[in-house]
Design a protein around this nucleic acid. Sequence first.
DNA 1: TTTTAACTACCTAACGATCGTTAGCCATAA
DNA 2: TTATGGCTAACGATCGTTAGGTAGTTAAAA
Lengths: 198, 198
Amino acid sequence: MNAKRMLLETALAHFAREGYEGASLQKIADDVGIKKPSIYAHFKGKDHLFLSTLKDALKAEKRRITHYFISCKDQPLETRLHGLLEFLLEEYNRSSESKFVLRMAFFPPSSLYDEVMELIYPFLDSMERRVVQLMQQAQADGAVKIARPEDAAVAYMTLTDGILVEMVYGGLPGAERRLGASWPIFWAGIRAVGQTES
Amino acid sequence: MNAKRMLLETALAHFAREGYEGASLQKIADDVGIKKPSIYAHFKGKDHLFLSTLKDALKAEKRRITHYFISCKDQPLETRLHGLLEFLLEEYNRSSESKFVLRMAFFPPSSLYDEVMELIYPFLDSMERRVVQLMQQAQADGAVKIARPEDAAVAYMTLTDGILVEMVYGGLPGAERRLGASWPIFWAGIRAVGQTES
DNA sequence: TTTTAACTACCTAACGATCGTTAGCCATAA
DNA sequence: TTATGGCTAACGATCGTTAGGTAGTTAAAA
């Protein structure tokens, strides 16, 4: 396989597991099967490797989420939103990509704070906008009554983060427990708030 | 002030901001105003300083939460639960303690994973048990009907994490936005689920 | 078609800086 | 007298990084 790709994938795993400061170029090079200075044939330095990895991961993540949204286009809102959470859990379990993104969104390397946020903000923003849009569309179709689609979207993002962070140390069982306990309450809340306010 | 206390407090701030691997004993010592090797008069090494800091922070956190629960003993369940979230946001904003605990719960140093989890698990467990107990008690009083108190507690913990992680990069405004948007939905959900299942 | 130049992707060796840590000395206080 | 809590000096290890060289490939020039 392409050495640059292997570097990106290996670095991703290391950054996800050890964080930016904890990951070492030596170990990444060892895993790839090259010598440490050879990294500099592909990347200007650790910063560059890290930011390239982050860009790459965000791009792939965005692509996959878009793909999911398309694949369940005809289903009702609840199925789509609940399904997205299940989908994210699967993704998180399958590869280190989501874990990496999550970690860097919450605890970016302090030396690269601005650069990281410049990449993450648009990603999360577009994610939230998409959920708002979904809610508004479902409401326009008359399928569900949602009082404030923006608030509903924010609450959904909050729920998502609460479940995803549990993946980090609770693993898949813990996250599924949270999803199973939270979803009925969340969805009943969405419906109830939609009822009370006309 | 006691040098050991200063070390614990300074270390806490550094570990919260830079993570375990990113924090350096040199800089911590500089901040305290002593030389690096003097740290070893109080702690066996970086591991020991870190774990002591974590124990200290968890103890203080637990004490404050207990204190909060007592202070609002007579209020209705919703006020107590909603108030706890506001209380946590204040705490998080005021000091680095909650940030440190949150960071280490989600992304512990990989070299100290077991030791950290041994400290964090009981903390989170007791927190969850307390919330379960609160829900059951409110139900016994006939104040609120809650279908499954355990699920309600898990959902509450999920909500808490979703709001707290937003504190990290969204800051207080972002977290308050999440709280404001999520709470009405969460609480309406709790009530609605309690209604449907007798 | 052959030669030559440039480029790519790796290497070894080594750089200076910083890391956590230890040894050993010295003052103050119990 | 012993213990505490600082200090200086220095340790070996590891960090990210650079210099400089070498095969293998590509492409233009002879």
